[in-house]
Design a protein around this nucleic acid. Structure first.
Lengths: 224, 224
DNA sequence: AACATAAGAATCGTTGAACAATTCGACAAG
DNA sequence: CTTGTCGAATTGTTCAACGATTCTTATGTT
C-alpha cells in the first residue's frame, strides 16, 4: 500500500495542472511549434480570444507565459508577435547548446538514459529511409533532448526544451529544413558510438565539431 | 547620419520597456529578493492589488511573470506563494551552477570580463573587513555572475540571474546566512588567481571542489 | 473526547464591458 | 517631399460580477 501512495505522489504535480490560461498557452505553443502561426506574424487579441472562446484577459495571461518562453514577442501597445529569431539569436542558441550538451557528454552516459538516446538514433534512421524528413527532425530533437538529460537536472531539461522550441522557429523560416537535417542522422549514430565506448573526451570533441557544423549550415541557409 | 540611426537602434529595446504589469513584477521581485516577502508566504491578490493601486487583472499578469522565474508558486484556486525551494531544488541549482560556471572557466577569461571579476573579489574583501556580510553576499553574487558572463551568452547570463535570485530564496530561510558566505571570500580570490594564471583545467577542478563545498554547507544549514 | 460532516465565509478563476492610451495609415498643408 | 493632423483600430487597464474551489467553523454522531 505504501508503494501505491509513493507512486501516486509522482502524479501530484499534474493535479494542479489545469487553468484556462495554461491550456490556452498549450494550444498556442503547439500551433506555433507546428508552424500554423508563422514567425513574425501578429496574434490579434480580439480574433484569437473569440476563436478560442476565452476572454481577452485570459488570453493575455497565456501570452505572458509564452512570452517568457521566448516564443512570443510582446511589444507594448502594438501587440504580440510570433518570435522571429535573429542571426545573433541563432548564434547564442548554439552557444548554450555547446555548454549544455558538452557538459552532458563529458559527464558520461547512465545506462537507462543511453537506451533513450539509442532509440532516438534508430527512429531517425528509420524515418530517413522513408524520406520522412519531418520524422527525422523530431527524432533528432528527441536525440538531443535525451543527450542533455544526462546532466540529470530538471532545470537543464526544461531549459533545453525551451531552447529547442525556439530553434524550431528558425526552421520554420528556412527554405528547405529537410536537407538541413540529413547529414546529422549519421553523426548522431557516430556520437552514440563514442558515448558507448566510454571516451568522454573524444565524444565532447566530436560534439563540438558537430555543433559548429550545424550552426554554420543553419546560419547560411537562414534568411531572417 | 547613418551612424546616428545605427546607434539609436541599440536603444530600441528600451522603448517598449514599461507596462504596469512589468513594473509591478519589478517591485514584487525586489521585495522578494530583499526578504520583505518571506518564502512560503501567501500573496493575496486583493490586498496587494489594493496596496499597489492596480487592478487584480494587472497584478495577475505580474504574478505569471514571476511564476515563470520560479520566484512564485502558483497553486490553482489557492493563490500564489513565495517559492520555498526544497532540498532537491538546492541540489539541482548546484548542478546547473556546475555546468554554467564550469563551462565559463574552461573557456578561459577575456580581458575586460576579468576586470569585472577582480572588482567583485575586491568588493567582497573590503566588505568582509568591515563585517558587512550583506555586502559580502552581494559581492559574491556579482562574482559568480561575472564568472558566468565569460560564456558571452545573453541567454546564459539571464539563466544565471534567475538561478541566483532563486538561490537567494534559500538564504532567506537560513538561520545565519552571514557565516555561510565567509569562507568563500578567500576561495574567490584563489579562483581568480587560477584564472589569471591561464590554467583552465586547474581552475575548473578548483571550482568543482568549491561548489561541492558550498552545496554541502548549504544543505546542512538549510531547514526547509 | 474524537471524528466525520455540513454549512458558511473567503478567495480564486474567468468573463464581459467600458474607457483611456497608443499606434498607424491617410490625407491635407506647408 | 516633409510635416502636422485626424480618425479608425488595437492594446492597456480597470471594474464589477458570478461560479468554482478551498478553508474555516460549527454541528452532530459514535
Amino acid at each position: 500500500m505504501d508503494n501505491v501512495v509513493a507512486d501516486l505522489a509522482q502524479d501530484r504535480p499534474r493535479l494542479g495542472r489545469s487553468s484556462t490560461a495554461e491550456r490556452v498557452a498549450d494550444i498556442l505553443r503547439d500551433r506555433i511549434s507546428e508552424g500554423f502561426f508563422r514567425p513574425g506574424q501578429r496574434l490579434s487579441e480580439e480574433s484569437i480570444s473569440e476563436g478560442l472562446g476565452v476572454s481577452r484577459n485570459t488570453l493575455r495571461e497565456a501570452f505572458r507565459l509564452l512570452g517568457h518562453e521566448r516564443l512570443l514577442d510582446h511589444k507594448l501597445n502594438r501587440g504580440v508577435f510570433v518570435r522571429l529569431p535573429s542571426a545573433e539569436d541563432v548564434a547564442d542558441l548554439y552557444r548554450v547548446r555547446r555548454v549544455l550538451e558538452g557538459a552532458a557528454v563529458r559527464r558520461g552516459p547512465a545506462p537507462e538514459a543511453l537506451a533513450v538516446i539509442k532509440e532516438a538514433v534508430l527512429d531517425a534512421e528509420r524515418a530517413a529511409e522513408q524520406d520522412d524528413w519531418q520524422g527525422v527532425g523530431t527524432a533528432n530533437i528527441r536525440f538531443h533532448q535525451a543527450l542533455v538529460s544526462l546532466n540529470e537536472s530538471p532545470r537543464i531539461d526544461e531549459a533545453m526544451r525551451q531552447l529547442l522550441a525556439e530553434l524550431r522557429l528558425v526552421f520554420h523560416v528556412m527554405e528547405n529544413p529537410r536537407a538541413f537535417h540529413e547529414p546529422f542522422v549519421d553523426r548522431n549514430r557516430t556520437l552514440l558510438g563514442l558515448l558507448e565506448s566510454g571516451r568522454p573526451g573524444k565524444a565532447a570533441a566530436y560534439l563540438d565539431d558537430y555543433l559548429d557544423h550545424a550552426e554554420r549550415l543553419l546560419i547560411e541557409a537562414y534568411t531572417p
